[in-house]
Write a protein that binds this DNA or RNA. Structure first.
Lengths: 327, 327
DNA sequence: AATACATGTGTAATCGATTACAAATCATCA
DNA sequence: TGATGATTTGTAATCGATTACACATGTATT
């Protein structure tokens, strides 16, 4: 691998000239430029990012923290992140924490070690205190999550309103017995969506039945099944279910089918996230669509602003209710 | 951010001593060590990877090339890659090509620019000639794909045998009219799986009906639906279908359901890959399980061997037929 | 006491780029 | 013609670490 020194020698100019050519070809004289181009071509030279990065003290790498890549909700967000990052000359390091603090630690250290220029955190389970500590010293934005105290810049949707819309839709098509499959209330979004659910019921004068709210301890398919199993075992069975994630809804759907009941005739079902699989089930799933690509794209813009020392405001984006066969 | 120089000054020793402490604390005297530890702590020092990387001319980053992260087949492979890489002190750069050559180019350049130490390619659509060219000059292994000429080191399964097993299973449970939903034969694995399908039929004396082989132009859900629609429109309708990917199979399942037919009673269905969603459908999908985690893990071991200049042999791993409700 | 060897530390070169500053060249114009 | 300013290039310091080599000290051996 040729270095800039060798190119300089071959072209009969100094390394400074080569560097100038690399960074702004226009400022080197036409004649010199041709010699440099010639030398680069014959030596098959490619500049080393290692040298450049050290000198500029930047890595042009962004860390994206997420619990797990297998959750399809994130894939579309990642597309937004990746496209925007590449457009801005950055690359992304996709980091799965599996909600394990020691994994988190590794990635926070990469930041401290200057192997990354900033962090986009999409992990709801990350330790809040540590995150705030990091955010004080390094560029960091939260995507689809946020900190109630508003110390950390974020981009997200209005979870309360989205849940409200979902439940309102169920009420509008005639349901009164509406259950909710929620994830642990340690998550802010879970608390907010529950508020939206309650507000919709309340507004329509439907009494709240605590029997019909089921809290799962994870977001997997099986948790959805268990939740539905429990709901189907209640003395009074709901006619509609709002699940806070599509995967949970798909688990519920499976359980409903197993019990010989039909969606939407016996039980209507609304999910959340509009993952691609929500369109592949039988029946297809009514769900809340988040502007995932846009969220990803925005968070990169915000992060790069932070890296460049500019101030950035948090943003709340719009969601959309997608009505399909399950309601 | 403190540098090694400042730490050295604070501790009253030379930078060499700090560096030695960082890389092998045992070789610095106990007394000095304590001074160094003290200085590091009070300055809150974290060594810069930029400096280290330049000096060692390595980045400790591995590029993982894949068509799209949204294909769940890859997520488990990635887990294997990530765990093993971290264990070996490397990090991974997940790179989606979307099968676009210009995206590929970006990532190959990162390699040339020394921003990555090696590449694991899982992209079947990547330009072969270019891949071989890269493999000649840089550490590269192929995972789940391979080059027929055997120039590039790879880890994969025996696709012909896996398809053979899948079709044999259908024959064993009484099917004679067996269709295949295949992806384009530009992919080596598609050609191989077709061979396995033909061998199984042939061995059981079942004549091959060209009407029953459908070639899709992509691997998406809708392609599966279209394929099944076509098969259901034939003059003679098959009683079993072998699809070369679970997503295609799930698309087919949707179409079968829409036509009011039942799986497995009217039509039996076998997929390929054992993605997590294959267990969430109604009915669950019989499929071929590839050792995805192991494939990922192996490919990292092989790549690191290559990076360290050691010779490495290609490997073919075992698959497994997972029989579930759809057959 | 002389020698050999192990242990611990410092000096300074090095990795491959960028860039401030100085210097050389050239054209322009009074 | 000489001053002025623009354009182009070179010199050398720099980013933050690692490491070969040299040197000083302590310990063991005869």
């Amino acid at each position: 691998m040729a270095t800039i020194q060798e190119v300089a020698q071959k072209a009969g100019v100094s390394v400074a000239t080569i560097s100038r050519y690399l960074n702004n070809p226009a400022i080197v004289a036409k004649e010199t430029r041709e010699k440099v181009e010639q030398a680069i071509k014959t030596l098959n030279y490619e500049p080393s990012m290692l040298g450049r990065n050290l000198r500029k003290s930047e890595s042009r790498l962004l860390i994206v923290l997420l619990p797990s890549i297998s959750n399809p909700f994130y894939t579309e967000v990642i597309n937004g992140i990746e496209d925007t990052a590449i457009e801005k000359g950055y690359n992304i390091l996709l980091c799965q924490t599996d909600s394990k603090p020691e994994r988190e630690e590794i990635y926070f250290n990469m930041m401290k070690n200057r192997l990354a220029d900033g962090i986009i955190s999409m992990d709801p389970t990350v330790d809040r205190a540590k995150l705030i500590e990091i955010a004080k010293n390094f560029p960091l934005v939260q995507c689809s999550e946020y900190d109630e105290e508003g110390i950390i810049t974020y981009v997200t949707i209005d979870n309360e309103l989205a849940a409200y819309h979902a439940v309102k839709h169920l009420i509008k098509i005639g349901h009164k017995k509406i259950a909710m499959i929620n994830s642990g209330e340690k998550f802010l979004y879970a608390r907010e969506r529950k508020q939206g659910y309650l507000r919709a019921l309340n507004e329509s004068g439907i009494p709240f039945n605590p029997d019909w709210i089921f809290t799962t301890d994870n977001l997997e398919f099986d948790a959805g099944r268990q939740a539905m199993k429990s709901l189907l075992g209640k003395s009074e069975i709901p006619t509609a279910v709002f699940a806070v994630s599509d995967i949970l809804a798909i688990g519920a759907l499976k359980e409903i089918n197993l019990k010989g009941l039909a969606v939407p005739d016996d039980i209507a079902l609304v999910g959340f996230d509009k993952i691609s699989f929500s369109n592949m089930t039988q029946p297809t799933l009514t769900t809340i669509s988040q502007p995932m690509y846009q969220m990803g794209s925005m968070s990169v813009h915000m992060l790069i602003n932070k890296i460049n020392g500019k101030h950035t405001e948090s943003i709340i984006l719009d969601h959309e209710l997608v009505i399909r066969e399950s309601t």
